[in-house]
Lab assay of single mutants.
Amino acid sequence: MQIFVKTLTGKTITLEVEPSDTIENVKAKIQDKEGIPPDQQRLIFAGKQLEDGRTLSDYNIQKESTSHLVLR
Rank of each mutant, 00 (worst) to 15 (best):
Q2D: 05
E16L: 13
D52W: 03
N60I: 04
Q31K: 10
V26G: 00
K11D: 07
D32T: 11
K11T: 08
G47Q: 04
D39S: 13
T9K: 11
S20N: 13
I3T: 01
I13M: 05
D52L: 05
L56P: 01
S20H: 12
V17K: 00
T9V: 08
I13Q: 01
F4N: 07
D58L: 03
Q40H: 12
Q2V: 15
I36E: 02
L50P: 01
L8G: 11
N60Q: 08
F45V: 03
V70S: 06
I23R: 00
S65E: 08
M1H: 05
Q31I: 02
K6N: 06
I61Y: 03
G53F: 11
Q62V: 12
V70M: 11
L43I: 08
T12W: 12
R42H: 11
T66S: 10
G35Y: 03
L50Q: 01
D58N: 04
D52K: 04
T66W: 08
K27R: 05
D32Y: 10
F45I: 04
K33G: 04
T12Q: 07
K11R: 12
K63Y: 10
Q2M: 13
R42D: 09
L71T: 07
K63C: 07
T7K: 04
N25H: 12
L71Y: 06
I44E: 11
K48P: 01
T12D: 04
V70C: 11
P38G: 07
A28E: 09
D58E: 10
I30W: 00
E24H: 10
L50R: 00
P38N: 06
A28W: 12
Q49G: 06
Q2P: 05
S67M: 15
I3E: 01
G10V: 02
R54A: 07
Q40P: 02
D39R: 11
T22D: 03
S67V: 15
I3V: 05
D58P: 00
V70Y: 13
V5T: 01
T66K: 10
T14K: 09
P37R: 08
N60P: 03
T9L: 10
L71V: 10
F4R: 09
R72C: 14
D52N: 11
H68S: 08
A46D: 13
K6A: 07
M1N: 03
T7I: 12
F4T: 08
V17D: 00
V5F: 06
D32G: 09
Q31W: 15
Q31R: 13
S20T: 13
K33I: 14
K63T: 11
R42L: 14
L15G: 00
F45T: 02
A46G: 11
L43N: 00
R54C: 10
L15Q: 00
L56D: 01
P38Y: 12
F45W: 09
E16M: 13
Q2L: 14
V17W: 02
M1E: 02
I36R: 02
D52P: 06
G53I: 06
K27H: 02
I61H: 02
H68N: 08
K11L: 09
E34P: 01
T66G: 10
S67W: 15
P37S: 08
A46R: 14
S65L: 08
Q41A: 05
L15V: 07
R54D: 05
V26W: 01
K27N: 01
T55M: 09
E24M: 13
L71Q: 06
E64M: 13
D58S: 12
Q31C: 13
E24C: 08
M1I: 11
S20I: 06
Q31Y: 15
I44P: 00
V70A: 06
K6H: 15
T7M: 15
Y59D: 01
M1F: 15
G53M: 09
T55D: 02
I36A: 03
E51L: 10
R54N: 09
N60V: 04
G35H: 06
F4K: 10
Q31N: 09
L50D: 01
G47N: 06
T9S: 13
R72G: 10
A28C: 09
R42K: 11
Q40I: 10
T7R: 06
E18H: 14
G53W: 14
Q62D: 14
G35P: 02
K29F: 05
T22R: 07
D52R: 04
I23G: 01
D21Q: 04
T7S: 06
T14F: 08
Q2H: 12
E18F: 14
Y59I: 04
I36P: 03
L56R: 00
E51H: 08
N25V: 14
T66H: 15
V17Y: 03
E51D: 09
A46V: 06
K48H: 11
M1Q: 03
Q40N: 09
E18S: 14
P19M: 08
S57G: 09
V70T: 08
Q40E: 11
D32W: 09
R72S: 12
S67R: 12
Y59E: 03
S20V: 05
T7G: 05
V26K: 00
K63N: 14
F45D: 01
T55P: 05
K6E: 07
Y59W: 02
Q49N: 12
D58F: 14
D58A: 05
T22F: 08
P37A: 08
I3L: 09
F45M: 06
I13K: 00
